[in-house]
Amino acid sequence: MKPEEYAWRQLQTHAAAQLRRGFADRVLRAARGPQDETWRQLQAHAGAQLRPGFAARVLRAARQIPGVPSLRDQFAFSAATVALCVLTVVFIHSRSVRLEDERNLAGWEQLADEVQDLVHYR
């Protein structure tokens, strides 16, 4: 055997020794991809994560959590909020206008009294 041929054989032997047992089987399984049985195992494992009484717990939780308000309810709530805000603004505005008027009136009355006093002294 020629030295280079021997070296190639050595290399081949070393490389082949790196392959773990069952290599061909693993390659075939990888090439085929996951089989239905594997998907079934996945589903069985997931199903086993559900504690007994799952359905009853879901129904109880569905009853306890308040439902999402309907679009109509949301509109009604928005309209009521807007109306409350408008009423508050109108109330505050009219009150401040009335107070301002009363203050002005008091000022004018005081001025009129002072003018009358002045006329009286003359």
Binding site: W39, L42, Q43, A44, A46, G47, Q49, L50, F54, A55
Partner: peptide, 28 residues
């Protein structure tokens, strides 16, 4: 449908600890 939904959730998330919570959310 609980087992099938659980399997779907597990395939999607890869987390066993998410299965019951997410399956419950789905059914609610």
């Amino acid at each position: 449908y609980q087992h099938r939904v659980a399997g779907f959730v597990y395939a999607m998330t890869g987390r066993s600890d998410y299965v019951e919570d997410l399956a419950q959310q789905v059914f609610i």
